[in-house]
Lab assay of single mutants.
Amino acid sequence: SDYEVNVNGIHHRFHNISEELIKFIEEALRRGEDLREIIKKVRELLG
């Protein structure tokens, strides 16, 4: 049904976003950045 496609589409989009965010955060932590600064950047990215 349309509803299922829609829900799956939304889930898929969020899954991709969270994968990208996790990579972004892991790389920043590897560079020794402060978690609070990383979260601030993530918030800015998400608008």
Rank of each mutant, 00 (worst) to 15 (best):
R31Y: 08
G32F: 07
S18D: 06
E4T: 07
G9V: 01
R30C: 04
S18P: 07
Y3Q: 01
D34F: 12
H11A: 10
I10W: 06
E19V: 14
A28K: 09
V7N: 04
L45T: 07
G32E: 10
L45V: 09
L29R: 06
A28W: 15
S1K: 14
N16S: 06
E20V: 08
L29N: 03
R30V: 11
K23Q: 12
R31A: 13
L35Y: 02
L46R: 11
E27I: 13
S1Y: 13
G47L: 15
S18H: 05
F24K: 06
E4Y: 03
R36W: 13
S1D: 05
K40M: 14
E26R: 15
V7I: 09
L35F: 05
S18N: 10
V42L: 07
H11M: 13
I39V: 11
E37Q: 12
N8G: 12
I25L: 04
E37D: 12
E37W: 15
I39A: 05
G9P: 00
E26V: 14
I10P: 01
I22S: 02
K40C: 02
R43D: 15
V42R: 02
I22H: 03
K40Y: 15
I25E: 00
R13W: 15
I22L: 04
S18E: 03
Y3I: 03
E37I: 13
E19G: 09
K40E: 12
Y3F: 10
G9E: 04
E37T: 11
E33Q: 11
N8H: 07
R30I: 08
E26G: 09
E33I: 12
R13M: 15
G47Q: 13
D2P: 02
I17M: 07
V5Q: 00
L21G: 08
N16L: 05
K23R: 12
I38W: 05
I22A: 04
E27G: 12
E4G: 02
G9K: 01
F24W: 12
V42H: 03
G47W: 12
K23N: 10
I17V: 14
S1V: 15
G32C: 03
R36Q: 14
H15K: 14
I39C: 03
E27F: 15
F24L: 08
K41W: 15
G9H: 02
G32P: 04
E37G: 09
L21S: 07
E19H: 13
R31M: 08
I10K: 08
H12Q: 04
L45Y: 10
V7E: 04
I38P: 01
H12A: 07
N6P: 01
V5F: 05
R36L: 09
K40D: 11
E37L: 14
H11P: 04
K40W: 15
G9A: 01
H12F: 09
R13K: 15
N8I: 02
D2Q: 03
G9T: 02
I22G: 03
E19P: 11
D34K: 07
F24Y: 14
L29G: 03
E27L: 15
E27Q: 12
H11S: 13
E26W: 11
N16T: 03
E19S: 09
N6C: 04
H15N: 11
L35Q: 02
V42T: 04
G47Y: 10
E44K: 12
I10F: 11
E27S: 14
L35C: 03
I10N: 09
G32T: 07
K41L: 13
N6M: 06
H15I: 09
I39P: 00
R36N: 12
N16E: 03
E4S: 04
I22R: 08
D34L: 10
I39W: 05
G47F: 12
I10E: 13
G9N: 04
V42Y: 05
N6K: 07
K41F: 15
D34E: 08
L45K: 07
E44T: 13
E33H: 12
L29M: 10
N8M: 03
G32K: 08
G32M: 07
I25D: 00
I17W: 01
L29Q: 04
K23C: 03
V5R: 01
V5C: 02
I25S: 00
R36Y: 12
H15M: 08
E20I: 08
R13V: 15
E20G: 09
E27Y: 15
E27A: 14
I22W: 09
V5G: 00
H12D: 03
R13N: 14
K41I: 09
A28C: 05
I25F: 03
E37V: 13
L46A: 09
I22M: 06
R31Q: 15
R36S: 11
R31T: 08
F14P: 01
E26L: 14
L21Q: 09
R13A: 15
H12Y: 13
L29I: 12
R30H: 14
I10V: 10
R43V: 08
L45G: 06
H11L: 15
V42E: 01
L45Q: 10
G47N: 09
H15F: 10
E44N: 09
G47R: 10
I39G: 02
E44D: 09
K40H: 09
E4L: 05
E37N: 11
